[in-house]
Amino acid sequence: MNDTDRTDALERYIGNTIRELRNKQDLTISDVSELTGISRGMLSKIENAQTAMSLDTLSRLSRTLGVSLSALFRNYDVPSGSAQMVKQGEGMEVVRRGTKRGHTYHLLAYDQGPNKLFEPFLITMNDKSEVFPTFEHPGTEFIHILEGVIEYRHGQNTYVLKRGDSLTFRGDVPHGPEKLIKLPINFLSIIIYNSNTNS
């Protein structure tokens, strides 16, 4: 985008923002003209991006519309971004080592490119008789208990985790559920991979 295009885009943005603020407050162009001392013709040109304006004019408009100068530009040139939303119950069910009856993994984000940065799982357990293997993987794991009570092993230590409790640990140390104390158990497990680790 060249300088002329940037200027045009900025004028369109300011014009649209001023029009939206004026309409939200049920003000006519005549109302704003009286309050600011700026002619109706000039205000119309500003809103339609047909003219540039001085900082003084912009300052008078922002005061009249009850916003700061910085608020006028708050959403200008903000990257559109992209986010992945997974609705409740729509996480992709995956099979991992140890997945058996009464033990499900739902992956809550995916398609992250060739090198995974993290993997968030919602894990549900509702079978007390299940025997769990230990896990080892690269990176760091964070778990947060949403429901139930579980005894969780990491290396030689065990931790009793209840609703609201969290545990963070190195993934390359053997770990996993030791005992299911109160069912059902639901918890978030987020594995964060090192940037130089391909998984």
Rank of each mutant, 00 (worst) to 15 (best):
T158H: 11
F135Q: 09
D77K: 13
H137V: 14
H144P: 03
S82Y: 06
K162L: 04
K87M: 11
V149Q: 02
R97D: 11
P114D: 12
V131K: 06
L117I: 11
K128P: 07
E130P: 01
R163D: 06
P120L: 10
V131R: 08
L167E: 00
F169C: 11
Y105P: 01
H175N: 09
R163Q: 10
G148V: 05
F169Y: 14
H154Y: 01
E93T: 01
F121A: 00
G164A: 13
H175T: 08
Q156I: 09
F121E: 00
T99N: 03
G164L: 09
P114A: 02
N115I: 13
M85R: 05
P138R: 04
H137C: 12
G91Y: 08
R97A: 08
V149I: 15
R97Q: 14
R163E: 12
Y152D: 04
D77G: 13
T158M: 05
N157V: 04
P133S: 09
E141M: 07
T134I: 10
Y152C: 10
I145V: 15
D127M: 06
F132V: 06
R163T: 10
F135K: 09
D77E: 15
V149P: 00
N126T: 09
V131W: 00
T168E: 13
V131N: 10
R163H: 05
H154W: 02
V94I: 15
Q84T: 07
G98I: 03
E151Q: 15
D165P: 01
T140M: 13
M85F: 12
Q156E: 15
H103S: 03
H103Q: 01
M92V: 08
P138C: 10
A109V: 07
F121Q: 07
L146F: 01
F169V: 09
F132K: 06
G89P: 09
T158V: 14
N126M: 09
N126D: 14
T140L: 11
T168Q: 12
T140I: 15
L117A: 11
G89R: 10
T140Y: 10
F132N: 01
S80T: 12
D172C: 11
Q112W: 00
Y159C: 04
S82N: 12
T104M: 02
F135H: 03
G139I: 04
V160L: 08
R96S: 10
G113F: 06
I150P: 02
E151D: 13
G164V: 12
M125C: 14
T99F: 05
H175I: 11
H154E: 00
Q156P: 09
Q84D: 00
M85Y: 12
K87E: 09
L107G: 02
E151Y: 06
N115Y: 12
V86G: 05
H103C: 03
A83F: 08
G171T: 10
V95S: 09
L108V: 07
R170A: 15
M92R: 08
L117S: 05
L161G: 08
Q88V: 04
T104W: 00
F169N: 11
D127H: 13
E141F: 02
G89A: 13
P138W: 07
T124N: 05
T104E: 07
Y105Q: 13
K87N: 05
H175A: 15
V131M: 07
H154R: 02
T158N: 11
S82M: 02
V86F: 03
S80L: 15
T104C: 10
Q112G: 07
N126H: 14
K116W: 05
E90L: 11
